[in-house]
Design a protein around this nucleic acid. Structure first.
Length: 814
RNA sequence: GCCGAAGUGGUGGAAUUGGCAGACACGCUGGUCUCAAAAACCAGUCCUGUGUGAAACAGGGUGAGGGUUCGACUCCCUCCUUCGGCACCA
């Protein structure tokens, strides 16, 4: 049998052995310091891809390292099992979503096991399991009780031919993915979670994460939450039943420059006007026909005069009110004051509709961009009555305070973050636990009636309304209050709900009385290291932070934040672009593993790039890693054969040198893993250790034997199968993965003599060897004895000596 | 448009955070071994020039240009390119 084949069989052998011996089994032990290593759980799409492999291999390095540092490590895995693709598969292949999902899970589980990752499989969960989603429903009810969920009308994508709601990903360039009909917008009553109530706390929490999460992610979240400090100002509407319009602005200092108001087409004021004015009604109808996405992309500033005027509260000026497409209903109040001189959008609108542009802010230094463009920066107020002369910053405060005293304004904090729409008109998700009673109205399901189990006897065709609507014996139920007729909510929850708290469920995955027992979560949480793709920066990582804070408020968890440290890994690419089916540039993990084995695959993925960066797949690089594995194997064979050592006089010196080099490298490896996640450089240092051993003159002595033993332990973090095999070859009886990671010994890093570079005017000219910590004067003497330096200095005048001890000498000459 | 990250040999990537640029690999070239090949091993490999049997030496070089400094891949300014996020947020 070839060695490759033999090695691959060895891998399977060890995987089985680890499982049998339960060496990774989780041990709840409050007396021991813990480490929670979590990778973002996969969606069971069918088979694992290289991105998964990278994610899980990185996770395994971290989990293994801390386990071998003596921490009690929890390293769970599970399945984000609800979602649309299962329904699409059902439509396409006439297979039940549950069957499709479970088949995929079984397949992917066995694929994952081939990687030799140290998971706690006994904690495995799947979110489509009623024992799991029961608690989604439970949390929903707790939120309902605390007024954190509510129902309101919202737009959905509607295919008029299929008579069904479409998810955003089922709308392709504005048409239905199945029948190519043009997609329409339709209003439906839907459930929302009041996440905006937590906006401030989500921002506050960032303080705890600084330095532990990638700065980039924190910035993305901050922008997503989008906090603005401003003012809400009342404008009275002249001669109408509509008394006033509230507007939000961050630029109260420009109030004197407001020459008109604009309101969103969806605003009640617009509807009010449309009811009286045919032209406006026609305009709105035209606007509402356009899909929302298209409207948002429109560059021209369309709008129509409402026929009404408002009173600017600061100067009692009468200004026209427009209905304008560019005003968004979902932000602020849906109405704005328009200051064309100091806002580019208002400026463009004013130009198109011939409205006056009045300058009220002058730059403090430099010149204004007017009249070509709006001047949007802060400055000094002009043409602003008694407020003229104030800076923008003072003006915002003074004007708002003044109007506040008249009851016409107040300071206001605005967020871009919107409430979380969780209703999905889908089958394969958590049923929203609500019933609609003919007498009692909307009622949450009682806790004791949970879970509301998803019925299995459905037909999924992709046509018609939500599949659940047609399951009559499920939809029709009784009201627990009046015993009258009631219907169940047929919408299911967004799958981001499932992934918002799964990390806590892992701590107590089989609990049927509560989501989890605090006894366990208080020990295991927070997650010490979370690993996943950066694409989750804003959705998943905000939702789960919110959910955690909600659990904190319920008293279920003790920490403010769920994830202590975050590592966002880069994509795996081929030809410089992400692997994808449509591009046809996919490398199948299964094929690579069966060709080269798991260890080679792991090693390449870790070695080819630092984890945060993009990783370009390279078959030759993989082969190089396979050769390295062989090189290590040969080293151990050599050790077992080696004999007849002649210890010469230089033995002592060589030994000290080897130990010094080794400890230096080991120190580097430790720092690379622990602090920098630099697995690529950690591996390069391992390679250096191997090279060092190969060239060691007294290979086979006690020192080299000891280093080899430690080398194998270090290797077990990266290439566990190889390490286990070699460990046993050298007589190990227990698993190498349960050994302690070697500690470097600073004292053994001895460098009595150091070579330091000598520069002249900053250019490297020579090198001298000196004793460590030699005094500056003595270094000078050595340098002035150096032939090359003397030659150069012959006809030069020395201006300055720069001597950095043990590092470098630079002579400045003329 | 705004925010962010990055730009280093033929390639992936290093550089103790301001101190010897190119570690460790891949690839390539030459050699050893072999009937041959693979593997392995040894040597070379940033560019240019002078030079030679081999060597050696000089100069240049981290996207471009400027600056700070004895000294810059690293800090500051301007610009270019690539990638990511947000995008009429008042």
């Amino acid at each position: 049998m070839s060695w490759e084949k033999e090695f691959k069989e060895k891998e399977l052998y060890w995987q089985k052995k680890w499982e049998q011996d339960k060496i990774f089994e989780v041990k709840f032990d409050p007396g021991k310091k813990k480490f929670y290593c979590l990778v973002m759980f996969p969606y069971p799409s069918g088979k694992i891809h290289m991105g998964h492999v990278r994610n899980y291999v990185i996770g395994d390095v971290i989990a293994s390292y801390w386990r071998m540092k003596g921490y009690n490590v929890i390293h769970p895995i599970g399945w984000d099992a609800f979602g649309l693709p299962a329904e699409n598969a059902a439509i396409k292949h006439n297979i039940h979503p549950e069957k499709w999902t479970k088949d995929n899970i079984n397949n992917m589980r066995s694929q994952l096991k081939k990687l030799g990752i140290s998971y706690n499989w006994e904690l495995e969960i799947a979110t489509c399991d009623p024992e799991y989603y029961k608690w989604n429903q439970w949390f929903f009810i707790k939120m309902y009780e605390r007024d954190l969920v509510y129902r309101k009308k919202a737009l959905v994508n509607w295919c008029p031919k299929c008579q069904t709601v479409l998810a955003n990903e089922q709308v392709q360039q504005g048409v239905c993915w199945r029948c190519d009909s043009i997609v329409e917008q339709k209003e439906l009553e839907q459930w929302f979670i009041r996440i905006t109530k937590y906006a401030e706390r989500l921002l506050e929490g960032h303080k705890l994460l600084e330095g532990k999460w990638p700065e980039e992610v924190l910035i993305m979240q901050r922008n997503w939450i989008g906090k603005s400090l401003g003012s809400e100002i009342k404008f009275k509407v002249v001669n109408s039943d509509f008394v006033d319009l509230d507007i939000f602005t961050t630029r109260a200092d420009t109030l004197f420059g407001a020459t008109f108001l604009a309101v969103a087409p969806e605003h009640n004021f617009s509807k009010f006007v449309a009811s009286k004015n045919f032209e406006v009604a026609y305009y709105l109808e035209k606007i509402f026909k356009k899909p929302l996405t298209e409207r948002k992309l429109a560059k021209e500033k369309s709008g129509i005069f409402s026929g009404y005027y408002a009173i600017n509260p600061i100067n009692n000026e009468k200004i026209p009110i427009y209905i304008a497409e560019y005003v968004l209903m979902e932000y602020g109040t849906g109405a704005i004051m328009c200051v064309p001189a100091h806002d580019q959008r208002d400026f463009e609108f004013a130009r198109e509709h011939n409205l006056p542009i009045r300058e009220v802010i002058k730059p403090i230094s430099g010149s204004s961009t007017l009249p070509s463009f709006a001047y949007e920066d802060d400055g000094v107020m002009i043409n602003s009555g008694e407020f003229s002369g104030l800076t923008s910053e003072e003006g915002r405060k003074k004007i708002t305070e003044y109007l506040k005293s008249q009851g016409l304004a107040d300071f206001k904090v605005q967020y871009k973050l919107k409430d979380w729409l969780i209703s999905r008109q889908r089958y394969w998700g958590t049923p929203i636990p609500v019933i609609y009673c003919e007498n009692c109205g909307v009622l949450p399901v009682r806790e004791e009636d949970l879970p509301v189990v998803l019925p299995k006897n459905v037909e999924i065709t992709g046509i018609g309304e939500s599949p659940l609507k047609y399951v009559e014996d499920w939809v029709n139920t009784k009201c627990y209050r009046c015993n009258g007729k009631a219907k169940r909510e047929t919408d299911t929850m967004d799958t981001f709900v499932d992934s918002s708290w799964y990390y806590a469920r892992y701590c107590d995955p089989k609990n049927s009385n509560m989501p989890f027992d605090k006894k366990y979560t208080n020990y295991w949480l927070p997650v010490d290291q979370y690993i996943g793709g950066i694409e989750h920066a804003c959705m998943h990582l905000i939702y789960s932070r919110f959910w955690h804070k909600f659990m904190y408020d319920l008293g279920l968890v003790e920490t403010e934040e769920p994830f202590e440290r975050l590592l966002t890994q880069g994509m795996v690419t081929l030809g410089g672009v992400a692997m994808s089916k449509s591009r046809g540039n996919i490398v199948e993990p299964d094929e690579i593993i069966s060709k080269y084995g798991a260890d080679t695959t792991r090693l390449f993925i870790l070695f080819a790039a630092p984890p945060q960066k993009q990783l370009e797949w390279s078959e030759t690089g993989v082969e190089g890693c396979w050769r390295f594995i062989n090189r290590v194997d040969r080293l151990i064979r050599r050790l077992l054969e080696e004999k007849n050592l002649n210890f010469d006089l230089d033995y002592e010196k060589e030994k000290v040198k080897l130990l010094s080099e080794y400890n230096k490298l080991l120190k580097g490896i430790t720092l690379d893993i622990e602090e920098e996640y630099q697995f690529n450089t950690a591996i390069s240092k391992i390679m250096e250790i191997v090279n060092l051993l190969y060239s060691y003159k007294y290979f086979g002595d006690d020192i080299s034997k000891k280093i080899i033993k430690e080398l194998i332990i270090i290797l077990s973090v990266f290439t566990p199968h190889l390490a286990e095999e070699l460990w046993h070859k050298l007589g190990g009886s227990k698993s190498v993965r349960t050994e302690m990671f070697p500690k470097y010994n600073e004292e053994l890093i001895v460098e009595e003599e150091i070579e330091i570079p000598v520069e002249i005017n900053g250019k490297l000219k020579s090198k001298v060897v000196v004793k460590k910590d030699l005094s500056e004067d003595d270094i000078k003497k050595v340098v002035l004895n150096d032939k090359k330096i003397l030659e150069i200095l012959k006809d030069k005048e020395i201006l300055k000596w720069i001597i950095i001890k043990n590092k470098l000498v630079n002579i400045v000459v003329k």
